[in-house]
Nucleic acid binder design. Structure first.
Lengths: 348, 348
DNA sequence: TGCGGCGCAGCAAGCGCTTTCTAAACGATA
DNA sequence: TATCGTTTAGAAAGCGCTTGCTGCGCCGCA
């Protein structure tokens, strides 16, 4: 029924071993033989059996990419960049690898299950993107899994995620703290003294680091933070909308709102507009990430650009062993402050 | 070194066959035995070898999802919805399947290669999303692949893509033509008579269908189209920006611009603003898809909402055999006109 | 002419799992 | 007590491929 290596071998009048070697190209085969085999492959429309090959060779050509939310361009951009370097079709010929994007939805148990599934498939490499959960038990479980993956020869790379010590994983970490700090510095520099902050979900490293940066800036400028100025929410637009209304309720005197990311900032803008406030005349707004749509907000969003595509590409190359690992296995990727129309001096 | 089924069997004092049966749960095993096995699995931290299992059982738990551009939320939303139904972790227990998202980047050869890779992995199902290429040779090649996949027992579902006759593939097709028609009807109803159209890439079904709908509306209202009113570009913001400037150059008298999708529309808005034109007072703008950010444009974008998540979820269920196929294997998914601030009557 | 070396192809032993078939043990039935 | 059916476990034959090792023929050198 299905064509096997043996069928090809028979048709080409060689042994299965020879066919295998032609296909894998890592053993000397006479040109005439190779041609005959290739012709047979073509004639028979033969497709290698991946599982059988993976079993025999004890490695597969699968590369896993874990993302928190595939519908979010933040992850989509990184995933796309990683994948383009992984090879897959379109990469350099020969090393055809199947880059598989796995959507964890931000759920710890899903993350773990995907890791197991990938381990089960004997993945060649795994790239974890985005912030990590801060739950200690979960972090330990993930670390254990990563260690096991590394032991089994799977390359593990973290992209936009804090390092995981003692797991053998290479980390390309975003400087969320530094970016948050710079952003708030900018706002304070404009004269703002009452700044609301819409943070992401509580238990995420990204959330914490950005918030820490924000607070560091406040402290550095001698501004004492009012606990009412911080609201936690999700990393989406609606959350930003609701959080902004809440902030305005708590302190109508705020002159700036810093959002956990650009989507949240967009929601914040909508809430401000709906409250009859002008941006930036009445309230300044700032985002984070600089996703493509940020520049189309009106006014355009002041934000911190994260080099998502570049970082992803680099992570992909490292995962494929095509780029040297950063010293110590850890690299800090910095963001860049993008000052645009949504931030201005506070109303007098 | 790595723990195998045999190791577990030895520790549980049963045969490998029994362990396999416990793990697959499709054969009667005494409760006490099962427990012993499960304990051994746990003790040894055993992880099933996917390839070996796939080889022996002649099926794998991989499900492929092909997308044109993973960084585009249009695809991200569909992919996320499909995946959530596929199961994967988080779905119903037991049927743990690895949903793998493959990014074709819109390149025909990549699409084909991914299909081959998936065939090689003996994928359980494949979902192709988004518009198809209109190149005849390529379409034939894809059709042949799909037929082969279907023959091998892989379920093939098309989501937001035109049917592929005689391939056995189930199609959930978006009514791009109808949506385009409705959108332009709306604009004409507002009084517009000179409408620019920014189309997507030439050789895509989506592009063609949306454009056909647009033209059908013009024709229905007795408006003769000026060839200068249509510009082709890519499905992204920048393309929309450039195309709009081009349209304005060709005919400064345009009172409305219809874009191939929301990203293009955003670019169009930016170009209009930069040209000193107000939306919708001077020029109305319309998009397509109703992606999340569309409502945050200022003014909010008039567009056609495509039920991406719903369609994706349905495609996922069909792929898993959990929902009945539509009659004839084809279903038309309609969009919904969303009238918002970016469209208004033409300037007098 | 003889022999070591080399280039290339084949043999065969798995890789770790699933599954069919067989068998043991036990209670129920006659 | 003898027979039979039922339930549960094991033996073993692959699934389709890779790869270490063996072997064959040929060239070049002594």
């Amino acid at each position: 029924m299905t064509v096997t290596l043996a069928d090809v071998a028979a048709r080409a009048q060689v042994s299965p071993a020879t066919v295998s070697r032609v296909l894998n190209g890592n053993y000397p085969v006479a040109a005439s033989t190779r041609e005959r085999v290739l012709k047979a492959v073509d004639d028979l429309d033969y497709v290698l059996n991946g599982p059988a090959s993976a079993l025999a060779a004890a490695t597969s050509d699968l590369v896993g990419i874990l993302v928190n939310d595939i519908a979010d361009p933040f992850f989509g951009i990184m995933a796309g960049a990683i994948q383009s370097e992984i090879g897959g079709p379109g990469g350099r010929a020969g090393g055809e690898r199947l880059a598989v994007v796995c959507n964890t939805g931000g759920a710890p148990e899903r993350e773990l299950t995907y890791l197991t599934l990938l381990q089960r498939q004997r993945a060649a490499a795994v790239v974890l993107t985005g912030g990590a959960m801060e739950d200690a038990a979960h972090q330990a479980a993930v670390a254990a899994k990563l260690r096991k993956l590394a032991e089994a020869g799977t390359r593990v790379v973290l992209c936009g995620r804090p390092p995981a010590p003692d797991t053998g994983a290479i980390a390309l970490t975003f400087d969320n703290r530094g970016g948050g700090r710079e952003l708030t510095d900018h706002l304070i520099g404009l004269g703002h003294r009452r700044l609301g902050y819409i943070a992401g979900p509580q238990e995420r490293t990204t959330t914490r680091h950005r918030l820490e940066g924000h607070r560091a800036a406040l402290t550095a400028h001698g501004i004492e933070e009012d606990p009412r100025w911080t609201v936690h929410g999700r990393y989406d637009r609606q959350s930003g909308y609701e959080a902004t209304l809440e902030l305005l309720r708590r302190d109508p005197g705020l002159t700036a709102v810093v959002a956990a990311n650009d989507s949240v900032a967009l929601g914040a803008c909508a809430a401000l507009r709906d409250s009859g406030l002008r941006i930036p005349d009445d309230v300044s707004v700032a985002g984070f990430d600089d996703l493509p749509f940020s520049i189309d907000a009106v006014p355009a969003l002041t934000t911190v650009r994260l080099p998502l595509a570049e970082a992803g590409a680099r992570a992909g190359r490292i995962a494929m062993g095509r780029e040297e690992e950063p010293p110590g296995g850890i690299a800090m990727v910095r963001g860049e402050l993008m000052v645009r129309g949504s931030s201005g001096g506070p109303r007098p």
